[in-house]
Simulated scan of single mutants.
Amino acid sequence: MVKLTLYGIDGSPPVRAVKLTLAALNLPYDYVKVDLAARANLSPEFLKKNPQHTVPTLADDGHYLWDSHAIIAYLVSKYADSDSLYPKDLLQRAVVDQRLHFESGVAFADGLRSITIPLFFYNQKIAPKERKQAIIEIYDFVETFLKDQDYIAGNQLTIADFSIVSTISSLVAFVDLDHAKYVRIIAWIKRLEQLPYYEEANGKGAQEFISLIKQSNLSFAS
């Protein structure tokens, strides 16, 4: 029997990307919430599992993995009955990988983390106006990715969708999606919301994140 343990918090987009993948694969797992506010991720016990002290962290049969992109690719490669979520075809896989790197290096790093780290750790409640423009640019890129296709990396659901939707559904806490401008993104999100596991794996956590941001009274510099 598969014995997996996921360490994380519901509001974290990367954690939600892993939860979406686990749900899509119908994999049972234990979920351990890590109290980041209390710095539980810096405890000696946690640091033995993940010296970078980040969430998500996945335990699989005594082995520990971190970084959501590495985790979700690993889960599909090891446990999926087919390669549809992470194609073995080299060109198709390269497109998925590109989207995953876009989420990591652009959408999450430039759009989300660059605001949340100063906010949560240094109580900086006024974000530079450049951060707002960066989010708009991210939306523009994703809208372009979805041209003539239903999903982020083509016409089938992949782990790239799980990764990027977890962040896009969080970025709306800072900058609303213009429904007239981002027609493809809106349709894509609605498509993913039809997945039977979407709300539990991502929707609830995204709303938790949005509520946290709203309560922080964050604003952008003019």
Rank of each mutant, 00 (worst) to 15 (best):
P118M: 07
I117H: 03
S114A: 15
V106G: 03
D97H: 05
R99D: 05
F108G: 00
D97P: 00
I117Y: 06
S104V: 09
Q98K: 13
S104L: 15
P118F: 09
A109H: 12
H101A: 09
H101T: 00
K88T: 13
V96W: 04
R93P: 05
R93C: 07
S114H: 03
E103N: 13
G111F: 07
L90E: 09
L90K: 10
G111R: 04
F108I: 02
D97K: 03
R113N: 13
A109V: 07
L100S: 09
R113T: 11
R113M: 11
L100A: 10
H101C: 05
I117S: 02
G105E: 08
I117R: 11
I117P: 00
P87E: 07
D110R: 10
G105R: 08
F102I: 09
Q98F: 11
G111P: 06
S104H: 09
A94C: 12
H101V: 06
F102H: 08
R99L: 08
E103Y: 02
R99C: 12
A94T: 14
V96G: 01
F102P: 03
G105T: 05
G111L: 04
G105A: 14
Q92E: 15
F102T: 05
V96M: 04
S104M: 13
D89H: 06
D97I: 07
Q92N: 12
L100F: 08
A109S: 11
L91P: 02
E103T: 07
L100M: 14
L112S: 01
A107M: 14
L91C: 02
F108H: 15
Q92W: 02
F108W: 13
V95R: 14
V95E: 15
L100G: 08
I115P: 01
E103P: 01
V95F: 09
V96C: 07
S114P: 00
D89R: 04
V95I: 15
D89F: 05
L112P: 04
A94D: 05
R93W: 06
Q92D: 13
V96F: 01
D97L: 08
S114F: 00
Q98Y: 11
L90M: 12
L112A: 01
K88I: 11
I117E: 10
I115C: 00
E103I: 04
R113G: 03
I115S: 01
Q98A: 10
F102M: 10
L90N: 10
L112Y: 13
R113L: 13
K88N: 15
R99N: 08
Q98N: 14
A109G: 04
R93F: 02
K88L: 12
V106M: 09
R93V: 00
V96Y: 03
T116H: 03
T116E: 03
T116G: 00
V95C: 04
I115M: 10
Q98S: 13
V106N: 10
L112W: 12
T116L: 14
P87I: 07
G105M: 11
P118D: 07
R113P: 00
P87N: 04
Q92A: 15
Q98E: 15
R93S: 12
D97N: 15
D110W: 10
I117T: 14
V95P: 03
F108E: 14
V106W: 05
K88P: 01
V106Y: 09
V96A: 07
D97Q: 10
A109K: 06
V95A: 07
D89Q: 06
D110Y: 12
